[in-house]
């Protein structure tokens, strides 16, 4: 659905307007129906990448295809975009801005506007001027304008940065419901817990380079670092010291190569294995490890 091919981008900076490259030939694909997280610390190039995909900023080199084509007004009609910290017109109401934006598309009526306002929880505040909206409310109206025309592809830039915990949960629920409807979603974030909860795939960007791409579940599954083994009814296993003791239960933490030895030792001592849980790295740990490699 989105193909980013060898994209380079630089900006002029400082008094002498020297060129500074912020994207060093990044490439990735976003498949149809996937929820993809674009991860990276502040200044990694996430927003620049998204602006290039949206045609707001032209790349110096490389190419971006959306729906297999170069971005045009027609392709834009099938994209919903929420920028970082959205800001709209102070003296227009939430409803007015949605009405105005709905004119860009066909067959959008008041019913659709009300539906979207309800979805983002702004129905009561829809007739207030936007200058009286809080940061979270502006984020919601931003989401409403992105969803208004029921686009196939949704691109969100740091969608949860201005939201409180309840707002973030609601936003995650919206993304989940969009995913169930088969929408493709690309969103950038530096809040890794949110990404871990809702993404199918992740693209890690650091200093303008893609450092890792993968399916989130596989990435986490393949990254088993140790096993937690709960043992009952024995004094424990020889040569292994438990992490915790509670009543007749022992909790051991062992590496993959030690697992067989531990189980054998427990059996020999007449103990019972209650559970063996593989523990993998969190997304945050994987991300930090990848960053350190650079």
């Amino acid at each position: 659905m989105i193909e980013v091919k060898e994209v380079r981008k630089s900006f002029r900076e400082g008094f002498l307007l020297e060129r500074k490259e912020v994207l060093h030939g990044i490439s990735f694909n976003v498949k149809s129906g996937a929820v993809v997280g674009l991860l990276g610390p502040n200044g990694a190039g996430k927003t620049t990448t998204i602006k290039i995909i949206m045609g707001i900023s032209p790349p110096d080199e490389g190419e971006v295809l959306v729906f297999g084509k170069k971005l045009s007004k027609e392709t834009k009609k099938a994209i919903g975009f929420l920028p970082e910290a959205p800001y709209f017109y102070d003296y227009l109401t939430g409803r007015e801005i949605l009405r105005s934006f709905s004119d860009f598309y066909q067959n959008l009526n008041e019913e659709k506007i009300n539906e979207v306002l309800k979805l983002v929880g702004l129905k009561e505040e829809a007739d207030r001027m936007l200058r009286s909206y809080s940061k979270g409310m502006l984020q919601r109206i931003g989401l409403a304008q992105a969803l208004l025309h029921d686009p196939e592809l949704l691109i969100f830039d740091e969608p949860m940065s201005g939201l409180d915990p309840i707002g973030r949960k609601e936003f995650r629920d919206v993304i989940t419901s969009l995913k169930e409807k088969g929408k493709t979603i690309l969103f950038s974030s530096h809040i890794l817990q949110d990404v871990e909860m809702i993404c199918d795939e992740v693209i890690m960007i650091y200093r303008g380079k893609v450092i890792k791409i993968g399916v989130l579940n596989e990435m986490l599954k393949n990254e088993v670092t140790y096993y937690e083994v709960t043992v009952e009814g024995t004094g424990g296993a020889d040569n292994f010291s438990p992490l915790k003791k509670s009543g007749g239960r022992f909790l051991y933490r062992v590496k993959e190569g030690e697992l067989d030895g531990l189980i054998r030792s427990v059996m020999e001592n007449g103990g019972r294995i209650r559970s063996v849980i593989p523990r993998s790295l969190t997304l945050e740990e994987i991300f930090i490890r990848e960053v350190k490699k650079v």
Partner: peptide
């Protein structure tokens, strides 16, 4: 950056 939201529309 209102312009970013607007330019993401077919314009």
């Amino acid at each position: 950056r209102t312009v970013i939201s607007v330019l993401s529309k077919p314009i």
